[in-house]
Amino acid sequence: MTTHPSPAVLARYADREMSLDEATVWSVEVHLENCADCRAQMAGSATDDSRDLLARVAAGVDHNIAAGPAPAGRRSWLAARNRWLVWHSVPWLIMTVAVLGCAVLLDALQPSLPSVVSLLAPVAPLPGVAIAWSRRHDPAWELVAGTPAAGLAMLLRRTAGVLAVVVPALVLASARTGVSLALTLLPCVAFTAATITLGAFVGVRRAAAGLGTAWALAVVVPAVVTAEPPAVLQPGSSGVWALLALTLAGLAATRADSFRRLTSHN
């Protein structure tokens, strides 16, 4: 910090008639920017003319502020909505919820069959997740893919947006049909984590399609044909599902660098 300029120098600085050499003007100016005392001292010794001028300028600025357009208001909730929701996946989420609604109806009409809700729960979020990270379905993919925010964090954020719709729908469906809540939600989370982990290697869209098909062929079809609840959804298996979900989520976290670019698989 420089020493305070003397009152005489300050007076010469304020008076444009008195010539002060350029180097001194600069050093006084830098000092004044950081020193409130000297600013006050200089303001106190201002002449009436300067005060008039300052008052006129202040009035002019106030007038122009009042006459100009109002500043754009804060719309943080709007911005938050745009950041968390993926608009192009809305139709797919509506479809998912509608299918779950149909499953609840089927369960009510056909109590003898294994619960359709619990059979559909693991694959319910997959269409939404696939759409959330997709070249074909995201209109702005090229813009988004070139930004620093693109990557695993963004995929997780969009997946969270999908789960925020699918999980409450599943909770409602399981409450209506009396299926165990843990055996509805844990497979759902495990399949979502599996999609992201597998997506690091083959693309999220392919991973979602592959896992959905595998589940349908290996579990849903046999369960419907034999009318027996599948072994993987027996009451004791929820611990295994939880462990699977945790492991897969951990694996996905280690593959973050695979999501920096939207590859052609997506």
Binding site: A79, N82, W87, H88, P139, L143, T147, A150
Partner: peptide, 18 residues
Amino acid sequence: GFYPRFTVREFVEYMAWL
């Protein structure tokens, strides 16, 4: 591509956030 329901300001804001 762009999200058709966004206003110009929302679109540019969203990109600035990204």
